[in-house]
Design a protein around this nucleic acid. Structure first.
Lengths: 212, 212, 212, 212
DNA sequence: AATGAATGAGGGTTCATTCAT
DNA sequence: CATGAATGAACCCTCATTCAT
């Protein structure tokens, strides 16, 4: 820790192990978003990071491991944003929900670069059990938190015939689906419209909380 | 052996060009769902089809082309289902919409094998302009049709503050998102719950049409 | 078999699988004798055979497998010589023994090229269980045959205090040891002297059979 | 931690150059006997010695050099044993010869670990002129000494038709051959039997010196 | 003297593609 | 049309070597 902080990342033969790993994961993210997972070679990543061929096997042992770590990083990063958003928003359940939805669509989260990476990994979920496990772990945490918020809103509004779990599933599906649209049809896609799509659903469901 | 006479697909040295292509695309779909796009080799596909190494380059010129055709096939197949569903359902707009949503979640459409392939392609959309183009073409047709149906429902119900385009986007996003859940969390996933998720959305938006 | 024989080995895209394998094993032997096992690359072997990079993995799956097959070939070849020698020699036990010893030292068997390969494999016996197994299998057959011959000689000569097994071990050790000398000190080494070394041993042990 | 004071080998940042070299050679021997020369990496050796990556290049300049030094060490060690054995044994020529043969088969010399290393080097003799040179140098000394002893025995016993050089070659070959058996067929191998193999030869050759 | 992160050449292996049959 | 042996580029990975600390 004493050594780690003073080194500038990117310089030859310097930088702490942690910093190097982050640097390489960043390069990996960039490459995947540009080329996709299959076409991303270790050479590409190393070049992107401005380092040499062997560097990745040195720090990550194997390409598989690098990809796992990259997915984990991506998920962790999302999780951090998620919790930070919850903390920053007021104590009101509806506020929290709105803050989360807004976060999911804000430029730094919902940008094609990043989405490309998410979908790249999702595209291999079926054939890569590890990816599925990582995704599941993080999704579970997300679901629990959103579910709780929805439950509170339902309680507050005494909404009848509305199941928190169903709403949670709907909201997360909606978000993921909107991301896909952003990725596939960036020309037609529009952040405001996407936001309205979510809001109109919330208004219809929870009219007392999300007024017109 | 000198002269083959049978015409059934799967038999060596026979079968029309069209049949061979379909057979190979079917094999490709199977392989992608099992291994993902990146790990699917032409050998795999040929073996899956029970044919020889060089067969694919013979019929499809290149791997890229095979993949493009496979995606096109997938999209076309979906489109056929879509229009068949529309035809079969009654003239009522709400009925049509419900029929479409049901179709999206029925076992033959929403099964992990098939979804894996869809997501495999979506995972490369960013880096493969061709894939994006194919997806866009088909999505546009879907959007137009659904949009029209929604518009009619809105007209019928005189729903205020509801935009057909928004609903269309929401519905397609919802479906895609539910597919992702099915792919990633098959254990937690449940067809009935998924259907309820969609219905609850429709009920919230169009209470007069989709009563409890 | 109909196809196999008419093809000339070495020509592109022709030659039966069997012929190609033999050709590649021959190239491997040459490379090992020149460079040793460790420094022999698949590139070297392919180049030596006048074929392309990928050819070996095509026919032998892996380098390890190629080496195993090469050792097996070497041992099998020796075995063939061994039995042919036995067949050709007269029925007399002493004649047979002498024929075998002569064979072991004849130029086509005891030449530095070939010995280099044997020792290359023996040099890895400790760390490569497969090599040891192959060597053992063939050695066992050799030992049985020589042992039988020695037993007969002992019986014929009514030699006291001489154990056939001991002699067998001594003879095979002597041969292997002489091979090592040939390999390490080719300048000092001399086929005639080597032969005399063996003969003097046989004379010392079986004076009635191998008279001066 | 700032200043190391101890001098025992194995402690970091201390130990004389000589001690370090010995330590590294010992580690090399162990690695070669376990993995063979080809599969022994400098990392392996350093790890075996409990030291760091770069240590070997620091002390030996290159891997080739390390291997040369290791072989030299092995040969030198054998030579020391050889002369010590000669010194310890009585002045009688026959006693000396018996002592040498016994030494060659005693556990500390004829153990599979050590033999594996010898054969590993012999396996590369053909392609590594340096190895051959080192082996030759030491072998020559051995031959001279044994030859002299044999000559004396022959003189003492007035044995006719026996050439000292031939016997020397036979004995060294026999020993090396027995070593190979020990390496390849440790299950069948037996120290007592090996010793008898040598003794029976000496008895047959020099009956007046090696009585039954 | 010692460390260990970094380098980069070179190895084994895979695989899309070609081509003689 | 179909086969499958052959090709060779390109990949992942290993490892001897270098070098800043």
């Amino acid at each position: 820790m004493t050594q780690a902080t003073k080194k500038s990342v990117g310089n030859q033969r310097t930088a702490s192990k942690q910093a190097r790993r982050k640097q390489l994961i960043a390069a990996t993210l960039k490459c995947i978003s540009k080329r996709g997972i299959g076409a991303t070679t270790l050479s590409d990543v190393a070049r992107e990071a401005g380092l040499s061929q062997g560097i990745i096997n040195l720090h990550f042992k194997s390409k598989d491991n690098l990809l796992n770590e990259t997915l984990r990083f991506l998920a962790e990063e999302y999780k951090q944003q998620f919790y930070k958003t919850l903390e920053k928003s007021g104590p009101d359940a509806a506020d929290k929900l709105m803050a989360l939805m807004t976060m999911d669509l804000k430029p730094s989260v919902c940008d094609r670069q990043k989405l490309a990476v998410w979908f790249a990994f999702w595209g291999e979920v079926k054939s890569m059990p590890t990816y599925r496990k990582i995704c599941n772990d993080y999704d579970a945490a997300y679901d629990v938190a959103v579910n709780e918020i929805c439950a509170e809103i339902i309680r507050e509004g005494r909404y009848k015939n509305i199941d928190a779990t169903t709403v949670t599933e709907a909201l997360s599906s909606l978000t993921n689906g909107l991301w896909l649209s952003c990725l596939i049809a960036p020309d037609r896609w529009n952040r405001t419209v996407a936001m309205e799509t979510v809001i109109s659903y919330l208004q219809a469901l929870f009219p007392k909380h999300f007024d017109t």
